[in-house]
Nucleic acid binder design. Structure first.
Length: 973
DNA sequence: GAGCACTGC
């Protein structure tokens, strides 16, 4: 079957203003005349617009658009009234407002929210102006702005390429939403997007980075003059913590809302409440949600979120048509092989244009790269590039030398498109065409290729060089960058990628997409938190997104290695992140915003109740939330569930931008100068994949030897970093600390990382995170005086012990105990550990430095299930620490008589030894000294100590004169 | 004795 992915023609799109259909009627409380001003306020206003505010924008505007002078925007065509306003706008833009020149009619509450009657001129270059006019969204400016002016919340739907991200902020700026010292805020789900969008918009508007700025986790260029601010979604969430009403913004745009990232979802929930609050205060805030797909029901039909349905504006995209070809048969498991065959066919038979293949993981990517390179070898004819591509096999190099003599200029196949029909019919194994009525796609001929093997693909063919590149997130950035450069002359680019290429990275020049239809996802067990990775089918939206990657620069083709029937069985959208992940970090953030009844929060899609309960339970155990009452009426107890308020400790923890378990470690580390070490360990645990992977299969013997050498070197270093003697008990966390310490000591250079098996990018991220955490800790305790020391000394033995205790206090729910010999019933429990929540055995991961040690008690960073359940990031724990540091997880028995209770003169407390068991699993724990439990017995002991003169030492001389021994106080009467 | 996609504070 042949389906058309998108059919809009360049620049001219039919316009749908769904707002008129989807949304509520125009607000009754808005006088007609005021609404019409929004029409008159436009540069290309028509004289009729004042009386015809509902005029269809697509009918009358067309010609005006053609006539429009690029210079117009500099102000020449603005009518007199607007010119007057412009003066105001200019004054505001260039100097602090002398007087509140009320462009925003905040004083009139009965009126439609915020109607800036200003026009801020922008001086764009003619080239920019011309390029802008091609963007479909530009034709919708009036519709968009009218909707925004008249509604507090607007949803804009437009696929990639509609220009909404770059243009809507400019519309708002021109309409005065950045005047009076306020800001237009735009959130992006990725850092690169925030940075690059700010740069592009600054350039388009001919403004400096002081006015169009960005803010991401570690850096930004925001100034007092900033008018348009791009930021990552997490940054805005943090800002809400400081200023709940976001008073410096007049508009917030949430971009890429369809991706449904966790922070985006929370922001939308929060903003749904902030917008009405701001309205009440007479300082209206506009919320614009921008989404690529039509997946907006979660927003529009969610009355808890938005009681009034926000209008939805749909904008066309300037995408080229992509013809979608489905396989007739769906390969059961060898999708990788099917990819190979499909790429071979495309490369042999179809015209020039890059190929992008979607696979699921690194190993698959590398193996397909090898196969393709073997089939269509490409050899560099000049080594001047200096880049040695280690993935080129020895064999290929040998072949290259052989063939050099008869080497001609490499060229792409010049196939006769009309002779395509000579392909045997039985190979045309695809779903047969449903007629595509799109000319643009048809012009590229019928490019169905059929599935299955034609049998000759494996033969090496050096006359058809294919420039094959791998692409995945963990690939070193300099290797990633290769895909953005144009391939060597005479070759065809073929990028074999994971899901990074779906949203995060856009590769230029892709004409063919090969989509295996699968994705590797991380799954979390909602109760135990154990994660695993599974390869699953993608969603329809995801498949369309992948297909769209073929139509960025010209019409393209997408080959789906599954049938249209299978496609129809895909879920429409993948589930929002918030429903699939542990949410303890989010809940802590929300509690810090004093949202106690998290269950009542207007989530666009709420997380499962079990996830909320697990999060609340963990936060209580960490001491971040106040414990709910365990006495009183059952009803009250239930009501208190999931509504615990935050504790002072929780507030401190919420200021640290790391997972709550790690935040707890930071909060504890003031003692014994452990902070710099805890900060480093926490940073290292937060950044993923510190170490290079050497276990991947090698291409050649040479490479195998190289990998072996690197691996040996790394294992050696691992031993060094793990420390000596008792220090080794900090386990994998000691390795992290040692690795980061050594790397920083050496100046955190790329070469040091490469030599020692460290991921350079990870080390840079750790360095920045250490900086951020150091600042955060300093701002909590001003006298800490911390700084990031590149020459940080290793911790002392005593400090390592404290660090182990700190780690235990944070990872209390991640405690595991080794199966004792006498408990060993089944061989599958050999070397195994038991945890509180899991029935099944868990094991220390073989990569752990404690793999052979097998301490009785360990804590782990995470459990990942592969062939077994493996604990990663393991650290050893002394049994007696458990009751002392994790009282919430221990059930204590009666105070022991031996050793006897004692009095602590320093603190004035009555102490005793109590045995305990670990919750749920009932492990016997050593008796430790704790406060004597509340009750009459405690007072009896106190009375005895008082009489003995231990409380007031002066009394000790009298104790002998007492008629009875002070011990009589303990008697039961 | 191993094999992890992607991203934000």
């Amino acid at each position: 079957m042949k389906l058309l992915y998108t059919t809009s023609k360049l620049g001219v799109g039919e316009r749908i203003y769904q707002a008129k259909r989807v949304t509520q009627e125009p607000r009754a409380d808005v006088p007609e005349k005021i609404r019409s001003i929004s029409g008159a306020n436009k540069r290309r206003h028509s004289s009729g617009s004042e009386s015809e505010p509902e005029e269809d924008p697509s009918s009358s505007e067309e010609e005006e658009e053609q006539e429009q002078d690029p210079e117009k925007s500099s102000g020449s065509a603005v009518n007199a009234a607007e010119k007057a306003e412009e003066g105001v706008g200019k004054a505001e833009a260039e100097q602090p407002p002398a007087a509140p020149s009320a462009p925003v009619p905040q004083a009139a509450p009965s009126r439609a929210p915020c109607q800036p009657a200003v026009f801020i001129p922008v001086d764009r270059t003619p080239e920019i102006q011309e390029a802008r006019l091609k963007l479909p969204i530009l034709a919708e400016e009036q519709v968009v702005m009218e909707a925004i002016n008249e509604n507090p919340i607007v949803i804009i739907c437009g696929e990639t390429g509609s220009g909404k991200t770059t243009q809507v902020p400019q519309f708002l700026y021109e309409a005065g939403y950045a005047s009076s010292n306020s800001t237009i805020g735009i959130t992006e789900p990725r850092r690169v997007a925030a940075v690059s969008m700010s740069q592009r918009v600054a350039k388009e508007m001919n403004l400096s980075h002081r006015e169009v700025s960005y803010q991401i986790r570690y850096e930004g260029n925001v100034t007092d003059e900033t008018k348009i601010k791009f930021m990552t979604d997490g940054v805005l969430l943090k800002e809400i913590q400081k200023d709940f009403l976001l008073s410096k913004y007049k508009v917030i745009i949430i971009d890429e809302a369809h991706e449904r990232s966790m922070f985006t979802d929370i922001l939308i929930g929060l903003l749904s409440r902030i917008v009405p609050l701001r309205h009440k205060k007479g300082l209206p805030l506009k919320l614009i949600i921008m989404s690529a797909t039509l997946r907006v029901e979660d927003f529009t039909d969610n009355t808890r979120l938005f009681s009034v349905k926000p209008p939805v504006i749909q904008v066309d995209a300037r995408q080229f048509p992509v013809t979608v070809h489905f396989n007739k048969k769906t390969p059961l498991d060898d999708y990788s092989g099917e990819c190979f065959r499909k790429v071979c066919k495309i490369h042999r038979m179809l015209p020039a244009g890059g190929i992008l293949v979607f696979l699921t993981g690194q190993a698959e990517v590398h193996s397909l790269c090898r196969r393709l390179r073997k089939a269509f070898p490409y050899q560099k004819n000049n080594s001047a590039g200096g880049e040695d591509d280690k993935e080129d096999s020895v064999e290929e190099i040998r072949k290259f030398k052989k063939s050099r003599k008869r080497r001609k200029v490499l060229a792409l196949p010049k196939i006769d498109l009309n002779s395509y029909s000579v392909v045997p019919v039985d190979e045309g194994d695809e779903d047969r065409d449903i007629d595509s009525d799109d000319d643009a796609a048809g012009s590229d001929l019928d490019l169905d290729l059929g599935d299955g093997d034609s049998g000759e693909d494996e033969k090496s063919d050096s006359s058809l060089p294919l420039f094959v590149l791998p692409l995945y997130s963990l690939l070193a950035p300099e290797k990633q960058a290769k895909v953005f450069r144009s391939p060597p002359a005479g070759t065809r680019l073929c990028v074999v990628a994971t899901n990074v290429a779906e949203t995060s990275l856009t590769i230029p020049g892709i004409k063919y997409v090969v989509d295996c239809g699968k994705v590797k996802r991380r799954f979390y067990d909602r109760i135990t938190g154990v994660s695993s990775f599974r390869v699953t089918w993608i969603s329809q939206a995801s498949a369309d997104q992948r297909a769209g990657r073929a139509g960025r620069t010209e019409p393209g083709h997408c080959y789906r290695l599954y049938s249209s029937a299978v496609f129809m069985d895909f879920e429409k959208f993948s589930a929002p992140e918030i429903t699939k992940r542990p949410v303890e970090d989010l809940i802590l953030q929300m509690k810090a915003l004093n949202i106690e009844k998290v269950i009542n929060f207007p989530f666009p899609t709420p997380p499962p109740t079990e996830a909320l309960a697990a999060a609340e339970e963990l936060l209580i155990a960490l001491g971040a939330l106040k414990e709910p009452p365990t006495t009183g009426r059952l009803k009250e107890q239930l009501a208190a569930k999931l509504s615990c308020p935050i504790s002072p400790l929780g507030r401190v923890m919420a200021t640290f931008p790391v997972a709550p378990r790690y935040a707890k470690m930071l909060a504890l580390s003031r003692q014994h100068d452990c902070l710099p070490y805890t900060i480093t360990i926490v940073s290292a645990m937060t950044v993923r994949e510190l170490f290079e992977e050497f276990d991947r299969p090698a291409v050649s013997e040479e490479e195998a030897a190289q990998l072996k050498g690197k691996r040996a070197r790394f294992l050696q270093m691992q031993k060094v970093w793990a420390g000596q003697g008792p220090m080794q008990k900090l386990g994998d966390l000691m390795v992290m600390l040692g690795a980061v310490g050594a790397c920083e000591y050496a100046g955190c250079t790329r070469s040091f990382c490469e030599e020692n098996g460290l991921r350079y990018k990870a080390m840079l991220e750790i360095r920045r995170l250490r900086g951020q955490l150091t600042t955060a800790v300093n701002s909590v305790c001003a006298d800490a005086g911390l700084y990031v020391d590149p020459k940080m000394k290793p911790p002392t033995e005593a400090q390592v012990t404290y660090l182990r205790q700190i780690v235990l206090a944070g990872l209390g729910d991640h405690l595991a105990r080794r199966i004792q010999a006498e408990e060993l019933l089944d061989d599958k429990w050999k070397n195994a550990y038991k945890t509180a929540l899991l029935e099944d055995p868990v094991f220390i991961h073989p990569s752990s430095v404690l793999f052979k040690e097998l301490p009785e008690f360990v804590v782990y960073q995470e459990i990942v299930e592969t062939t077994k359940m493996y604990m990663k990031g393991v650290s050893a724990v002394e049994p007696e620490w458990i009751p002392a540091l994790l009282p919430p997880y221990c059930h204590f028995g009666k105070p022991l008589e031996n050793p006897p209770p004692s009095y602590c003169p320093g603190t004035g407390r009555v102490l005793c030894h109590r045995p305990s068991v670990f919750y749920r699993v009932g492990w016997q724990l050593p008796a430790v000294e704790v406060d004597y439990p509340e009750g009459i017995e405690r007072y009896k002991h106190f009375a005895r100590f008082l009489l003995e003169g231990k409380v007031i030492t002066e009394l000790s001389s009298y104790s002998k004169c007492l008629l009875s021994s002070p011990l009589i106080m303990l008697k039961t009467w």
